[in-house]
């Protein structure tokens, strides 16, 4: 490659020594793009502090993003009067924790079996699991409602097991159908593949069972994959609303997203909508803020390899 000295002069300073003096212009595009991504949420949060009439008026100008006018936390107190928000939050946290927790176990085992073990039917199993990625939940919701209402369950009443029918109106109907996840299995399988096979073989020679290899070798080496899957399965469960509307009738078992529906009355109280949506969004943002470094680096090292 024939190179002109000019191209080196251009590329060099941005990458090398004298960057201190020239670093601030690099923030300009970063800040510009940041504004694009943050403004709707800024609008949500600012609106949650304003009375309804002002929200509807401010939405026509940049006042929508500014803490101007009559600010108060009235909307928040109204929200807690209208909706059992803390109860909903507890339900959601519980359901999300269950789905993520069991999902990590079930899907990582499947990912292990599909990536590191040789067995007949593996190819077909992998194809079927990947094919399920194309089924959006909404399209099978109706048969699913009918079906979960017919499923049996064992309940312990005074320590005596009794067989009951129907999963509606429970926590389990919000949890169990979402534990197995093709995308998670895929990510685990990809990550496990990158761990050297020799480790397994050495352990086999030492007499370790395959299950021991999974538990003692593969899992401890796969922290980033577990972190990635945890975050990616956390989000859809936190945000699910169609399914709970259909299968959860008791107010005491409803998750946070159903609470949004409470505010669309004859006269929608927009301030309260904004306060409630802030209430259910901010925990996720904080969670992400705390774990974002781990998340990005874990995806990076989980090395998404097609």
């Amino acid at each position: 490659m024939t190179t002109s000295p000019t191209s080196r002069q251009i590329s060099d300073p941005t990458h090398r020594p004298s960057r201190r003096s020239r670093v601030w212009p690099r923030y300009i595009p970063l800040v510009g793009v940041a504004i694009v991504f943050i403004f709707p949420l800024l609008f949500m949060f600012m609106s949650s502090l304003k009375p309804d009439a002002q929200i509807l008026a401010d939405v026509r100008s940049f006042r929508a993003f500014l803490p101007v006018g009559e600010l108060s936390t009235d909307n928040y107190s109204a929200v807690f009067d209208r909706v059992p928000a803390w109860r909903f939050m507890a339900n959601t946290i519980f359901v999300v924790a269950m789905v993520v927790g069991f999902g990590l176990i079930v899907n990582s085992m499947a990912g292990f079996a599909l990536s590191r073990l040789q067995w007949r039917g593996r190819g077909i199993a992998l194809s079927i699991i990947l094919a399920t990625l194309i089924v959006p939940f909404e399209t099978i919701a109706v048969p699913m409602v009918w079906w979960v209402a017919k499923l049996p369950w064992i309940e312990f009443q005074d320590f005596i097991p009794t067989l009951t029918t129907g999963w509606l109106n429970t926590y389990r109907v919000q949890i169990i159908p979402f534990i197995a996840n093709a995308f998670s299995i895929f990510l685990f399988a990809q990550y496990f593949k990158s761990i050297p096979k020799e480790l397994d073989e050495a352990a086999r020679v030492d007499g370790a069972s395959w299950f021991t290899i999974y538990r003692k070798i593969i899992v401890p080496l796969s922290g980033p994959a577990f972190a990635t899957v945890a975050i990616l399965t956390f989000l859809p469960v936190w945000n699910s609303f169609l399914w709970p509307i259909m299968v959860v009738q008791q107010e005491a078992l409803r998750p946070v997203q159903v609470g949004v529906q409470y505010f669309f009355q004859l006269e929608t109280a927009w301030g309260e909508v904004m306060a409630y949506t802030s209430f259910i969004t901010i925990p996720v943002l904080l969670f992400f803020l705390v774990f974002q470094r781990a998340f990005v680096s874990s995806i990076a090292s989980a090395g998404v390899k097609g």
Binding site: W119, T132, P177, A182
Partner: peptide
């Protein structure tokens, strides 16, 4: 082992997707 480890996911898929 392969079958056993894939079984929980397979059963859940069979019940709630397939």
């Amino acid at each position: 082992t392969g079958w056993v480890m894939v079984a929980p996911a397979a059963i859940l898929f069979a019940l709630f997707l397939i």
